[in-house]
Simulated scan of single mutants.
Amino acid sequence: MDTRAGRYFRWLLFWQQQGRCCYCGEHVLLTYRPYDAARPYAATLEHLHRRADGGTGHPSNLAMACKRCNDTRGERDWLSYTSWRRDEF
């Protein structure tokens, strides 16, 4: 996804998710500056069904997650990872 489309989807998902991470529910920082993008609560695009498992870049498969959750999800399913991050187990 090119930069312009990525920015648009991050903004759209930020608005739809009320500025919260899809996994932990914490507020995220929507920024386009490179040094802010490295912060743990920077908004990132997340593929719910991982591309490594056959997921696509279609907008229905995208959500906004904080960098911390996006980096730590690993191979877990998105629904079980959400439950784990929100201490629902």
Rank of each mutant, 00 (worst) to 15 (best):
C22N: 00
P40Y: 07
H47E: 07
V28I: 15
V28K: 02
D36G: 13
L30I: 06
T31K: 12
R33S: 12
E26G: 04
L45F: 05
R39Q: 08
Y35Q: 13
A42T: 07
H49G: 03
D36M: 14
H27T: 13
G25Y: 01
R33Y: 15
C24N: 02
H27L: 10
L30G: 08
Y35T: 13
H47M: 03
E26R: 09
H49E: 08
L48S: 02
P34T: 15
H27I: 06
Y41G: 01
C22D: 00
L48K: 09
G25H: 03
G25S: 01
T44C: 02
P40G: 05
A38I: 15
T31N: 14
A38V: 15
L30T: 03
A43C: 06
T44E: 03
L48M: 12
L45Q: 00
E46N: 00
V28E: 00
P34G: 14
D36V: 07
A37Y: 09
L29R: 08
R50Q: 12
Y35S: 10
L30N: 06
A38G: 14
D36Y: 13
L29V: 08
T31R: 10
C24L: 01
P40A: 06
P40C: 08
L29G: 04
Y32F: 15
H47L: 01
Y23V: 04
